[in-house]
Design a binder for these strands. Structure first.
Length: 112
DNA sequence: GTGCTGACACAGG
DNA sequence: ACCTGTGCCAGCA
């Protein structure tokens, strides 16, 4: 069988290697710190910000999704409220607690 | 194969 | 702060 193609679909309940690695990294982010989608892709040395975003959209529910945000510090679309609650809870440095909620990337970005 | 879409990033306006 | 266009990488009709 030429060209593998990961047996069409593939999603089922299992995550492919990339997704698994993305979730691993997210799991390693300490409380009160964050990483941007692009940071994770770069840290992994594979895929891109959009791929990381897709992984989070599909399987991010099982990890600390609120620690993965946009490069400008704004949290994932549709989850700003929940994210803000988490930030207050774990002391994540904020630049703005009002909408648009923004994490202070200079202080919260991880690793560093 | 072709084209649209998306939890992105970045530069402009 | 918001919107637009361009670049980027995959998934899906």
């Amino acid at each position: 069988m030429p060209t593998v193609t990961v047996a069409d679909g593939a999603p089922r309940g299992e995550l492919d290697g990339f997704a698994s690695r993305v979730l691993d990294v997210v799991d390693a982010i300490p409380a009160g710190r964050v990483m941007s989608y692009g940071d994770i892709a770069e840290y992994l040395g594979e895929g891109g910000p959009r791929q990381v975003g897709r992984v989070m959209a599909l399987w991010g529910g099982g990890v600390a999704w609120w620690r993965v945000i946009h490069a400008d510090g704004t949290p994932a679309p549709g989850h700003e409220r929940a994210a803000l609650a988490r930030y207050r809870n774990e002391g994540t440095p904020l630049r703005s607690a009002e909408s648009p909620v923004r994490v202070n990337m200079r202080l919260a970005r991880w690793p560093d």
